[in-house]
Amino acid sequence: MMQTTNFFGLSEEQMMIRENVLELLERVMPREKIKELDKAGEFPFEAYQALADAGWMGLAYPEEFGGAGGSNKDLAVLIEAMAYHYGGIATAYNTTIVYAGMHICRHASKEVREELMPKIIDGSAKLALGLTEPGAGSDAASIQTKAVRDGDEFVINGQKLYTTCAHVADYLIVVTKTKPGSGHKGMTIFLVDAKQPGVTIRPLDMLGRHTTHANEVFLDNVRTPASWMIGEENEGWKNLMDCLNVERMCIAAVGAGNTFKILDYTLDYAKQREQFGRSIGKFQVIQHKFADMRMKAETNRLFLYRVADLLDNGQNAVMETSMAKVVATENNFEVANMGLQIFGGAGYTTAYDIEMMLRDARIGPIGAGTSEIQRNIIAKLMEL
């Protein structure tokens, strides 16, 4: 359990969410298992299915789709707790349930929702979102993957890059151009069977997040039914924007939970490690690092729950979710870096988890819209 966190403001039900998910993950995914999976680069299948079996995959989906109809704050609490245990399992959850699954929930046809939502919720269908390309990272409107109608199907050709969890996905949410040369206005999103001929997925060797690593995805004359279009033709950009607030909130939740984990983990070490006849936590230089780490961790949580409340109140909190994403991910990495410094030479070995925490945290300010892009958004909304 979190040692340093003040839980004021959470309902009794939200406290139960936190306690139940932490108890489950501690049982099915102990620390030695996490290290084993990280070293092998293996997806946390057992923990993922355990979360599904416990009903957590449906928390944020409407009851009409078999979900629990939970609030944004419920979702934030759940993901924060998962990330406190291990950031990788929270990323695995987010990839299917939020980044890709929200497109199915909000914009797919009734038939696609009825077919796929139960499989997402019971854990039998994993998804990945294919947006970034070799020539289109921050400039997402410049994607080149094309979809051309052929009767009742669309034929898709192109390449996606850094597609998280594509290697274990049953379905891909693929962002394409159906009207080349028209920028944002010509984008269309499709559901694609990841196992069909023409889809080639190659894992990438990444610095961190080894259990939910990124992949290259090649689409060579891949056919998908026109009925699997997500939303309207040429309106994909609007749908992407519609899902971004929740996505950024959930990324902030990963940063918030993981930052507190690093804080608690390093605090335990500092109380036990002795130099010059006393624990290193007794030295003021170390105490000040912990004071800074605690302030950063608390700031993450304040931003996270603030944006969750705004979204639950129906606010279009684009600026606030962008700020939360920047603050939580940058603080996450900074606290991991400070934690490794406190561990000293021991932290640079694989004997302790702090080196893995540092590697895993580094993607936060890069993925799903860099910190620089988020700052552009914030400045634009300030009418600069």
Rank of each mutant, 00 (worst) to 15 (best):
G364N: 10
G101T: 10
L384F: 01
G151W: 04
D139S: 13
V335L: 08
V175I: 14
M323Q: 15
I97P: 01
K185L: 09
G101I: 06
Y352A: 12
E247G: 13
S138A: 13
L384W: 01
F7R: 12
F154Y: 15
N72C: 12
G70W: 02
Q341C: 03
G69N: 05
E235S: 06
A50K: 12
N239D: 14
A128P: 05
M57D: 11
M295D: 12
A297W: 03
L116V: 13
I286S: 10
V318W: 06
L172F: 09
E13Y: 04
I378N: 06
G231H: 04
Q284D: 12
E320T: 08
E80M: 15
I342T: 11
T350S: 09
A194Q: 01
V148N: 07
N221Y: 04
T178Y: 01
N234C: 06
N331G: 13
N245Q: 15
S11M: 08
F190L: 01
V326G: 00
I17E: 02
Q49S: 09
A76R: 03
M187Y: 02
Y99W: 09
G69T: 07
P203Y: 00
G277W: 12
D242P: 08
T95W: 00
K282S: 14
G70I: 04
P30T: 13
D74H: 08
E26P: 00
E298D: 15
D360W: 05
E334Y: 05
A40H: 04
G281C: 09
L263Q: 10
N332Q: 14
G281R: 05
Q287V: 03
F276R: 12
E13A: 15
N234L: 00
A92G: 14
